[in-house]
């Protein structure tokens, strides 16, 4: 029988795999998966699910911080849909404001195609266009407020210098232009982000598909709508969903630029919720508004993903 030296015994012990805490490999993988999920899931439950559930409960109650809760049934919903003109304005404005997504996508697609072509300094253009996205929204609001300013604003200065207007335009103070003006700023901010997503999508379309199409007889325009657009569909719908989310939650830009005014010309659901809860202290009513916004929003997101074929954002060219 072979004998083992102490050195060999130590080396053998070091080589021997440590017995795992959980014996089965599959169980270990499941535990590991949940361990990774716990931090994100905790934040999601604490800051998303619980407030949403609380809002849902609140929307069926009369509640204020100083009085005990009382069951209200559908009172707040009736109030909202039958009597509240501001809610209707906010809903209409939110729907209009959602147009920032498709408009931004169309513009970003044009830019993405431009910076994807063989133009010189395209890397520089990509950076410049993307620069607007990481800016803080409050900063964007301040910049655009200055651009729109009646007295010292750049737009009025240019329009007057070109002789196109005699009197300065009150972009943010006029009922007819305020919402469009804020939308322009929102589009400017998100344009770079859309462009990057679409550019990635464009770069995933193999060049030989265009070559095959050109040999097959498709001109540039036909290549665009028979090859580029269908293959970009996941990227476009990803942008659309992100754009819709952004427009629904675009509180800070409105808050800084117009605070919902003039009147309620730029009031969105999100700003109206804030106003109801924290300025008018109608937390129960704000809860009902939040539930409606959530249902509205989730329906649009599901619809967009459905139209995208359930693969929004997917990159698969095979």
């Amino acid at each position: 029988m072979a004998t083992t030296t102490p050195e060999e015994a130590i080396a053998g012990a070091l080589r021997r795999p440590r017995k795992p805490l959980i014996a089965k490999r599959r169980h270990r993988q499941v535990v590991l998966t949940y361990l990774f999920l716990i931090p994100a899931a905790t934040v999601f439950i604490l800051y998303r699910l619980i407030p949403l559930g609380w809002n849902f409960v609140l929307s069926f109650q009369f509640w204020s911080p100083t009085a005990p809760a009382e069951f209200a049934g559908l009172y707040h919903y009736e109030e909202m849909f039958l009597f509240d003109d501001v809610f209707r304005d906010a809903l209409k404005n939110t729907l209009i404001y959602m147009l920032t997504a498709p408009i931004g996508i169309i513009m970003a697609l044009g830019l993405a195609m431009l910076v994807n072509s063989q133009i010189r300094s395209r890397g520089l253009y990509r950076t410049l266009i993307f620069l607007s996205y990481p800016l803080m929204t409050v900063g964007v609001g301040i910049i655009w407020r200055w651009l729109y300013d009646e007295k010292v604003g750049l737009f009025n200065f240019i329009l007057r210098s070109l002789g196109l207007i005699d009197e300065p335009i009150a972009f943010l103070e006029s009922f007819s232009t305020a919402l469009a003006s804020v939308m322009a700023a929102a589009i400017w901010q998100i344009l770079g982000f859309f462009m990057i997503i679409l550019l990635t999508g464009l770069q995933n379309i193999p060049e030989h598909l265009y070559e095959a199409a050109s040999i097959d007889g498709a001109n540039r325009w036909r290549q665009f709508y028979r090859i580029t657009l269908p293959l970009l569909r996941p990227s476009i719908f990803l942008c659309l969903i992100i754009g819709i989310i952004a427009s629904f939650t675009s509180f800070d830009l409105i808050f800084v630029m117009t605070n919902g005014g003039p009147g309620h010309a730029t009031e969105l659901l999100i700003t109206y919720i804030y106003r109801s809860a924290f300025q008018l202290s109608q937390f129960d009513y704000a809860g009902a508004l939040t539930v409606v916004m959530f249902v509205f929003f989730i329906t649009i997101a599901i619809l967009a993903n459905f139209v995208a074929g359930g693969d929004a954002g997917k990159v698969d060219i095979n």
Binding site: P206, H208, A212, I215, G217, A218, R226, P230, L231, I317
Partner: peptide, 28 residues
């Protein structure tokens, strides 16, 4: 290329991934 009356078979096939085989063949 479309006016040269040629057809080309590519190394990576260059089939249009979003079209059926019929649509691929009918494209030109």
């Amino acid at each position: 290329p479309q006016h040269r009356d040629i057809a080309m078979v590519f190394q990576d096939y260059a089939l249009y991934p979003h079209m059926s085989v019929f649509q691929n063949m009918a494209f030109s």
